[in-house]
Simulated scan of single mutants.
Amino acid sequence: MPETGELETTAVARPSKKPLMIGLVLSLLGATAGFYTMWSGLIPLGGGHEPVAEAPVEGATDPGLPTVELVFVPVVPVVVSVGQGAARSHLRFAAELEVKAAHKSHVEKLMPRIVDVTNTYLRALKLADLEDAQALIRLRAQLLRRMQVVTGAGRINDLLIMEFVLN
């Protein structure tokens, strides 16, 4: 028996770090090999097949898309003064309406009303309204809605702004 002042020393077994090091080296090798195969193109992205661009066949249409003939009807260019006093400037606005071919004559007959709505809306704007970054998007949406009300539902598909110059 050991004496009371002596402590018994027993060696504590530490686990080996060898499996940890082997796992780390193998994971680095695997990651490097995976990166190289993707980077070099040995395994193509997208499931292993390259998309093939097909040349459009003349006269063929996509069966999923409805075939609607669209025409563009020009709106008479409008010049309005914007602002007050010394800050007065002029806005030149020109646009075209995307219309189904069947409604072209109806929209052309209503062009004086469309120009009136355009002129009235643009005259009501302030200079600060036009200098905003989102002004053109808002202006396009507002004018398109007003023109659709004038011509009737389903006659005008879109409003294309061709000229928007603020002097």
Rank of each mutant, 00 (worst) to 15 (best):
L125K: 08
R92N: 07
T32N: 05
R88A: 14
V82P: 03
I161E: 04
E98V: 07
E96Y: 07
S40V: 11
V12R: 11
T120V: 04
G23T: 13
V25N: 02
V117P: 00
V52E: 14
G59C: 08
D158L: 06
K100W: 03
R140L: 04
E108W: 01
F72I: 02
K17S: 13
D116M: 02
P19R: 05
A101W: 00
V117G: 02
S81R: 10
R123H: 14
V71D: 00
M111Y: 03
K104I: 02
V76Q: 14
T67C: 05
L29C: 09
Q134I: 07
A102Y: 04
K109E: 09
L110T: 00
L20N: 10
V52K: 14
V115Q: 07
V117D: 00
A60E: 15
L139P: 02
E6R: 14
G30K: 00
R123D: 10
L26P: 02
E98R: 09
L20I: 08
T151G: 02
I161K: 05
V117N: 01
A95W: 01
N157E: 05
S105E: 11
T67A: 13
M147V: 03
L28Y: 04
G154F: 08
A33I: 08
V149K: 01
E69P: 04
V76L: 10
L70W: 10
M147F: 05
P112Q: 02
V80N: 04
R138S: 06
